[in-house]
């Protein structure tokens, strides 16, 4: 089969890998200590010393944005993993076994979908208090329904395929059917959902942090930086701008990646 070139896919890959590299660098090196305050140099305009300027405490914005990318990736990866694992198990059982198992799980998922996601997260955080771990758990739970639904539908679809029936006729058990026959075929639609949930989780985290419910100081978070930058939008516009661009880039990158993956899948089908 000819390899189809999908432009959004490559742009997405480019943006995401660029931010990934930035994140990896920030683990070992940032131009300044992201938490070092310099009261003589508050809200400084971009310069050679501080390429993106400094914030209201005189901290280097470039370093903080770099450090913030770690938070973004940790939250994205952990929240998506939680949602993926639980959602996959729920969706796979519902789709594979059908009947009353499906009925119970599907109604449970419907109930989760009935809550606005962010409200659910705020509720969870209100109960379990703020912090990185609780934010991750809340965002993970938020993404369960979409994974569960996608997995359920692809399991239901592939369960009916002749190759699955042929394999049952050859004596294959449920475990073999699930892991060898259905799972490899269900991966590509799930990948799209992973990419979309990733950007969704980062966006929600920024939203929560903006409201002061997400990641707490001193961990840098793009959402909270945006909140801190808000009062200075006229006096130090670069602060808002840089932080906003960082969030946008990451979300855009993952969305393009998801679009590209979907295109590739559609072409195959």
């Amino acid at each position: 089969m000819a390899k189809e070139k999908s432009i959004p896919f490559y742009i997405g890959i480019g943006i995401v890998s660029f931010l990934l590299v930035v994140m990896l660098i920030s683990i070992f090196y940032t131009p300044h200590d992201p938490n070092a305050m310099d009261s003589t140099n508050r809200l400084a305009a971009p310069s050679l010393e501080h390429p993106f300027g400094t914030d209201n405490f005189g901290r280097d914005i470039l370093s903080r944005v770099m450090e913030g990318s770690q938070t973004a990736f940790i939250i994205g990866i952990s929240a998506v993993s939680i949602g993926l694992i639980i959602g996959f198990i729920l969706g796979a059982s519902a789709g594979y076994f059908g009947g009353w198992v499906d009925e119970i799980i599907s109604r449970f998922i419907d109930a989760m979908l009935a809550f606005p996601g962010i409200l659910l997260a705020i509720m969870l955080i209100a109960v379990f208090s703020t912090g990185m771990t609780n934010t991750i758990i809340a965002l993970g739970i938020m993404s369960i329904p979409s994974f569960a639904r996608i997995t359920r539908s692809s399991f239901m679809q592939y369960k009916k395929y002749d190759f699955v029936k042929a394999s049952i006729a050859k004596g294959a058990g449920s475990i073999r059917i699930i892991f060898h026959h259905i799972l490899p075929n269900a991966i590509s639609p799930t990948l799209v959902a992973v990419a979309l949930s990733f950007s969704g989780a980062i966006l929600s985290e920024s939203g929560l942090s903006y409201l002061g419910l997400g990641v707490q100081p001193p961990d840098p978070s793009w959402g909270r930086m945006l909140k801190e930058a808000q009062p200075y939008i006229t006096s130090a516009p670069w602060y808002v701008f840089i932080t906003g661009v960082a969030i946008t880039l990451l979300v855009l990158g993952f969305n393009l990646l998801a679009d590209g993956l979907r295109d590739k899948q559609d072409k195959k089908a």
Binding site: Y161, D162, F163, S167, H180, H181, P184, N185
Partner: peptide, 8 residues
């Protein structure tokens, strides 16, 4: 087309 697993 449906009776062979496309991924194997």
């Amino acid at each position: 087309y449906a009776s062979l697993n496309p991924k194997k």
